[in-house]
Design a protein around this nucleic acid. Structure first.
Lengths: 346, 346
DNA sequence: CTGTTAGCGCTTTCAC
DNA sequence: GTGAAAGCGCTAACAG
């Protein structure tokens, strides 16, 4: 009682306008197929009735909904939020909506999300993959749903990825440290199984080593807590590397917290470079030298690939260049190439 | 050619199981109405076929989709991301999906989002309102769509809100400053038309004045840029208030940037309290004293209100308490109640 | 240019 | 317990 949620339907408009439903439909979707006079009348009536076409019915009929799915481990990571903004931006511009799903890094949740999105008949899915659901990804592609990965590469066949050029970015960091005279670095790597952490760690180590330095890799959860723990580990040593390279902004948060709590002076006691440039990097003391990613652009490009035409010849993996933002967390060492790195870091 | 995106439908399952579609539907939705034997068989076949019920068809039939809409000005504001996480958490737990929409603070985009969500037959909408679409909000409620506002109060009839207890939080900040001996404060208010900024500014001023202090309010865009500009304005004065109160984390970013660039020492030259406690607040030097909001809980509560039963007697506006996190950005003044506030701050 | 017809895939009475 | 039938609101041939 007292509940008349009578949505007005296309049929209502048709009746009032004295035309058939299909004409109304046309007036809305292909106006050029309807005589100007009736078109105007229909549109006018539709407006006056506050008519909104039912997307659900439309999607059922068309077999596809103007919707994109976005599966992220956690939207509150600033990098992810920026990616989401980019995705949403082009989706909205093209008339698509965004369904957001959190995987929380859990393969089961990811699977649930993928299946859910499929059942929603989304036009495409943008996915930060755990890598544990490759078959499902491939199956979705088979069914005609476009899938594009961001930030990681699961290895699923037929699924392109958009991510930062981790090799280039990590090399930038390594080189910068090398040039500042550092020859011994501690790498807070995170979970090396993740494309981002793995590639960054490896590329950094390779470049740094090639330049005559020695890199020690420490793995830990890719979270602030993981970074915190890694930093404590670093500090607990007798002799310490002169520089620390952190592969994600999340971990950097923890690293910084630890250094701060222990009263470690940056860059006097330790130099720091972070892969990723969260908004706070320039706010801390000292401001952090960081490898900036084009997060929003990654989102945009991913959305474009999902929505755009399929170019068979197109590169499967798109790597967006990064940029080194020099701030004040790296000390220039007095004796470049000198004695800092012990001959045997182990 | 080479494109057989044949989704398997309920009918396929029925055929293979040798039963009618309705039985399959029952087996899936009300298993108790189907004999255990057939039920098992159906479920088994469904599984082997990789069958996923089509949400679109289901939603059309049911006239409602298990989906919530979330309209935010910008997901990359950490407070919003946390709200979103909260919303998503309870939505997911209850089997609902989330459609994310960015209003970018534009009433037109908000209207578009609202209309879009309506056309998707979402079960409910969680909205950070611009306040310029009250009639539409009310109309949606009339049509049976639950709408709940977060962080702001538009004033739309029948639309509850969930937000921080701005009065309590601002009072906390004022009191803290008062107790530390401050008697003259500069308030970076932001856009006072927004519930958050307005309430915080007013409550702070009132409490601070009541305690014998003088508060000067400065309005500016509620963005980092706005904060930056406000801080410069503050700095450009001859005599300055001893404390600055910033009503949002976004603006605090800009304020900090400005202070840093100008080499202003906190809290020696100016004390700082921020309403909102973004993840970086504890990372900067000095760590910022902040009023912490229960962002995620705001999201959860909002989602619960959208999804839960309708309690007619329930309070329309839910204000979640905040907490003062004392860190190191407030100086204890030597001469409490003394001469800091000039008799005539103007 | 416009109306008629036939569903999209699923749920839901209503019979059997 | 299970099937048949109707239809959610819209679109897309196909006629006229």
């Amino acid at each position: 009682m007292g509940k008349p949620p009578q949505r007005t339907s296309l049929e209502d408009v048709a009746r009032l306008a004295g035309v058939s439903p299909s004409t109304v439909s046309r007036a809305l979707n292909r106006p050029e197929l309807v005589s100007p006079a009736t078109r105007e009348r229909i549109l006018e009536i539709a407006r006056s009735l506050g008519y909104t076409p039912d997307q659900v019915a439309r999607s059922l009929k068309r077999g596809k909904s103007p919707t994109l799915g976005l599966i992220l481990s956690d939207i509150s990571v600033s990098f992810h939020a920026d990616v989401a903004r980019g995705v949403e931006e082009v989706a909205q511009a093209q008339g698509y909506s965004l369904i957001l799903f959190h995987s929380q890094e859990s393969p089961e949740r990811e699977r649930a999300g993928l299946e859910l999105l499929k059942s929603y008949r989304v036009a495409g899915i943008i996915l930060e993959p755990t890598g544990k659901n490759r078959e499902l990804e491939e199956a979705l592609v088979q069914e005609g749903i476009r899938v594009v990965e961001v930030d990681r590469i699961s290895g699923a066949k037929g699924v392109p990825s958009v991510l930062s050029d981790n090799l280039q970015g990590a090399a930038l960091a390594a080189e910068h440290l090398l040039q500042a005279g550092h020859r011994w670095a501690f790498v807070v790597g995170g979970e090396l199984g993740l494309t981002s952490c793995g590639e960054r760690t490896e590329a950094f180590a390779r470049r740094f080593t090639a330049g005559g330095g020695a890199a020690e890799v420490y793995t830990c959860p890719s979270t602030p807590e993981g970074g915190y723990e890694a930093a404590l580990r670093y500090l607990s040593r007798g002799q310490r590397p002169s520089a620390v390279f952190v592969t994600t902004g999340q971990m950097a948060q923890g690293v910084l917290q630890a250094f701060q709590e222990q009263g470690i002076a940056i860059p006097q006691e330790v130099s720091l470079v972070v892969f990723d440039d969260p908004p706070w990097a320039s706010l801390v003391s000292p401001p952090l030298t960081a490898v900036r990613q084009q997060a929003q652009e990654i989102g945009r490009k991913a959305a474009q690939r999902v929505l755009g035409e399929r170019f068979p010849g197109r590169p499967k993996i798109l790597r967006l260049p990064t940029e080194l933002v020099e701030r004040a967390s790296v000390a220039r060492l007095a004796d470049p190439g000198g004695s800092y790195p012990p001959d045997n870091p182990a």
